[in-house]
Amino acid sequence: MSGAEDATTRTPPAADAATPRPRWQVILVRPETVTFLFLIVATIGASWLSPFFADVRYILESFTFYFEFAIVALILTMVIISGEIDLSAASMMALSASLFGVAYQAGLGIPGAMAVSLLSGVLMGAFNGFLVINMKLPSIIVTIGTLTLFRGLAQVIAGDKSIGKFPAWFIGIDYRFVFDVPIPVIVFLIVSLILGIFLGTSAIGRQIYQIGTSPIAARHAGIRVNRIKYGLFIAMGLVSSIAGLLAASRLASVRYDLATGGELQMVLIVMLGGTYIFGGRGTILGTFLAAWLLVVIATGMTVANIPINAQLTVLGLLLIVSIIATNAIHVRTQR
């Protein structure tokens, strides 16, 4: 970047070339900045709405309700950056958690049942990958299909009864603390950090952006597009089954309707974080901030006893504003 600046100061730019943007703009005018500003405004607003909001312990506790969707949203961010989408994640959570419950009931023990659940996640992700990559079907259609399929299978396997009576040590992950911080919050921090570094600095991370920007160019550049996409879909399945297990621990029971409608919340988080829906752009940091933004807004309004319809209206408006901002910033930086 500094080289480009030097070049423009030495030689007069061509008439139709835009002047490079100043460094402060490159750093600050990003979709994540918008998310961060929203987060600050929302925090101030929520503290003003209710005297009960500004309590770190309460906010961290409330985060555990959204944690499962937030951690899936991290992987979904990478899937969307690569130009695909996966709407079946919430159903994968339900099916893998139902399998966990059934396997536990069948006497497999918690570790065995967890293994079954994680394996099912990998297989479901691979199935999505197979349909998208080998069958060359659009991922939005494929995963709307598997969204219904996996949910249906969950109901077939688990029936419409809850499965519970898990041992005490397995229950209540959201209420175990390390230095007064709930374990899910710590897990989310660590996973965000690792994925952020992976996506931002590793070779494969950069290739994911290239695939999303132009899959054909990426293929010509020798990037193993199919292999990376397969990996991403499998990662979605795996993280969904992990989220399903965490939900099972938090709720102390599983049911086929676990996380119903969760796919929309996941997409909401990714979009609020400034990831470009057509791929090629987005960051883990944005999704990380957006998860907290969602928590602050939902929690702040709930603790102020603001009716849910008003809450949904605010979230909807925020999503539209953030999509407009993301688009505007991307168009601007592409010039």
Partner: peptide, 12 residues
């Protein structure tokens, strides 16, 4: 009326 939708409200 989904099974877990009341949890944030109770916590609040």
């Amino acid at each position: 009326a989904e099974a877990t939708s009341q949890i944030p409200f109770i916590t609040a």
